[in-house]
């Protein structure tokens, strides 16, 4: 009777060791560079204060007749997200066709499109907002423009992928019947990609609602401004109600938008 055993696959000891050493070096470097002088003595007290502030929110702040209250702040945030998303959804369409590799004849063209979109994506929206504040002054409009421009990066990428995944059959069929470019776009391309576009736009809207809550930190409108004021003036009950308001709004938007996206696709 003969026995035989399955050979173990050769272990890549050298490769694994290299990775291990590299990771160790990375962590040593990271930990060594961070200054850590223990936590402040006040840390525990402040955490307790924040926690009790969140547990006992300042309900009066929800609605104030003279303005500058939670509801108006949240409404402002929502409005920034709606307009910003709309602007980017319109502006990103040409970018998406530029970056889709099945539209242009040469790979280099779509390559430059993809690169341009990744640059726009990398540019943080909050820095864009700072630049727009210089142009149109502080306020919600600067936030709208920042979100509108920044979202082009991600929406353009997602849209271009939707175009790349499109079935080319209808396009060819229309081409064969002698349709011009615009007719092909209108009757073959758009009907296929439109549901994807809508779904991605809604997805980006969810992200933009979150982003719009932080724009106020630098004065670009929304709920962020009163939150930063409340944090710096250590009004923890107000911090509590604002955080609660953000959590409720974001959760509601996520639920509604998620439901709509499931209906669309």
């Amino acid at each position: 009777m003969s026995t035989y055993s399955v050979k173990r696959p050769p272990r890549k000891i050298f490769f694994k060791l290299t990775i291990f050493v590299l990771l160790t070096l990375l962590y040593v470097w990271s930990f060594a560079g961070i200054e850590f002088n223990g936590f402040k003595e006040t840390a525990a007290i402040i955490s307790k204060a924040i926690l009790s502030g969140i547990l006992n929110p300042d309900w009066d702040y929800v609605y104030l007749p003279e303005g500058e209250d939670l509801l108006r702040g949240l409404l402002d945030t929502l409005a920034i997200a709606v307009l910003g998303t709309f602007i980017s959804a319109i502006l990103c369409v040409p970018f998406a066709f530029w970056a889709a590799n099945n539209i242009s004849k040469f790979r280099q063209i779509s390559g430059t499109g993809k690169f341009a979109l990744s640059i726009v994506r990398t540019f943080p929206e909050i820095i864009m907002a700072i630049i727009f504040i210089k142009a149109v002054g502080p306020g919600s409009f600067a936030g709208v423009l920042a979100l509108g421009l920044h979202s082009i990066g991600m929406l353009g990428k997602l849209f271009s992928e939707a175009i790349e995944n499109m079935d080319l059959g209808p396009t060819e069929a229309l081409l064969a019947t002698g349709a011009n470019r615009f007719q092909i776009l209108w009757f073959a391309v758009l009907p296929q990609v439109f549901p994807d576009f809508l779904s991605y736009t809604l997805y980006r809207f969810e992200i933009n609602v979150r982003s719009a809550t932080i724009l106020g930190v630098i004065g670009a409108g929304g709920i962020g401004t009163p939150l930063i004021f409340a944090l710096t003036s250590r009004d923890w009950n107000r911090v509590g109600i604002i955080l609660l308001g953000i959590v409720v709004m974001v959760t509601l938007i996520d639920i509604i938008s998620g439901y709509l996206r499931r209906r669309i696709v």
């Binding site: 402040i46 979150r210 932080i214 962020g224 944090l231 959590v247 996520d254």
Partner: peptide, 14 residues
């Protein structure tokens, strides 16, 4: 639901 910049602002306060 809470964006990272807001988390950071709270942790800075603490």
């Amino acid at each position: 639901t809470i964006p990272d910049l807001l988390k950071a602002a709270i942790f800075v306060a603490i």
